[in-house]
Amino acid sequence: MNHIVTVQDAVIAFDPDIEPTDAELDAIVREEPLILAEQELLDVQIALLDRPVTRLGQRRLRRAANKVLAARAEVANRTSAVRAGEAA
């Protein structure tokens, strides 16, 4: 006869009160400019969804996309510099 048991230990093993580590918080801080740039791009895209695209709208979209690219490059360069510093 097979007994039905709960998976209580597996559920309790994950503690929802666990705080992020310092390394995880540092990674979030490093990526914050990228997150904000992506949010701005998304805001512009949402604003342009239900309107005909004007020259101003195209400019806003292009500027937001360029800001995302610049932030991605900055984060990538900063990450590679951190890794190079750790290796030294």
Rank of each mutant, 00 (worst) to 15 (best):
A71V: 12
A65G: 01
E74M: 08
R78L: 13
Q39K: 14
R59G: 06
R78A: 15
E74I: 05
I46E: 09
D17A: 08
V82H: 15
K67R: 15
D50G: 09
V75I: 14
S80I: 06
R60P: 00
E24A: 06
A27M: 06
A65K: 00
V5D: 03
A70P: 00
E38C: 04
E74P: 01
Q39R: 14
E24M: 11
A37Q: 02
P33V: 04
T6N: 12
A81K: 09
Q58R: 05
A71E: 12
A27P: 00
L34I: 02
P16E: 06
F14Q: 11
V68C: 14
A47Y: 09
R83L: 13
P33D: 09
N66A: 13
D9K: 13
I4Y: 01
R62I: 05
L34E: 11
I4V: 12
E74V: 08
V29R: 05
R60F: 06
R55C: 11
Q45M: 13
E24I: 12
E86N: 10
A27V: 06
Q45W: 04
P33L: 15
A23F: 06
A10K: 04
Q45T: 14
A13Y: 03
D50E: 11
V75P: 00
L25H: 10
A81V: 15
R62K: 07
V53T: 07
G57F: 04
R30E: 01
L42G: 03
D9G: 01
D15Q: 10
E32P: 01
V29G: 01
L41M: 12
